[in-house]
Amino acid sequence: MERRQVTGGDLVRYAIIFALLIFFLFPIYWMIATSFKAPGDILTRPPRWTFQPTLENYFYAFEQANFGLFIKNTLIVAVVSTAIVIVIGSLAAYSFARYDVGAGHLMFFILSTRMFPAIAVVIPYFVIFRDLGNTVIGQALSLGLDRLGALVVCYTMFNLPFGIWLMHSFFQDIPVELEDSARLDGYSRLQVLLRVVLPLVAPGLAVTAIFCLIFAWNEFLFAFMLTRAVARTITVGVASFWTQRGILWGPLSAAATVCVVPMLIFALLLQRYIVRGLTFGAVRG
């Protein structure tokens, strides 16, 4: 599939992409627009397209609802759990790809831990962390209820299977000849992994990291059930705009808008890797 000159086909393609982008981005636009609306401009018939923008909703979200804390919590939990998944998961994924430990059965078993409905394990997790929180280890590692460590564990749990499988598929694309020649050059197995394989697979790790971050960033159920106030995350904070006075659409949209920004920054930062990436498979031939 080589590149062609500018053709009618290109125009059609961009037209389709444009239409798709409208579908995918309009709700985001609507969310951002709502975040700048005064309460009286939100539930109207017909919807208002022009309005006097206000920052009121952002002030509300940050001053009244303490969103700064929630964002900080979520950042910590998402980044730490993603880091753990990438480090631990890449080792395991490499082992599965290169040595085929467990002949696929073990990998399948790992995936199956993601299949159990979260709701059925919320109460066990609740009890585990309640009891762990009262032990010395639990307190040292911040593993109790309403502690960030508990969420890190939960998010690591549900991202690990996904991460291992995705990274496994990237490791598989590394030609084994490369590793063999490195071994012959006197590298140890660990050095081969760290100095030869990991740099090659970095784009794949970046992709995995983005998705893990997003999943952790967006998780609701565990965050709701295992936190109270101190370790509350943004999704729970957003849900608390569903109030007795009705849904506070403005602050809710403001909070949701703010929540997207860090993910967008991550995506743009890692974009470089993805653009360059995933073409190494070509050498496999």
Binding site: L25, W217, F220, V238, A239, W249, V260, Q271, I274
Partner: peptide, 19 residues
């Protein structure tokens, strides 16, 4: 385009569901 496509994914369903 790729970054923009990531946006729906980057929003929490608990929040965008309400939107």
């Amino acid at each position: 385009i790729r970054s923009l496509l990531l946006l729906p994914l980057a929003t929490a369903p608990a929040a965008t569901g309400l939107i």
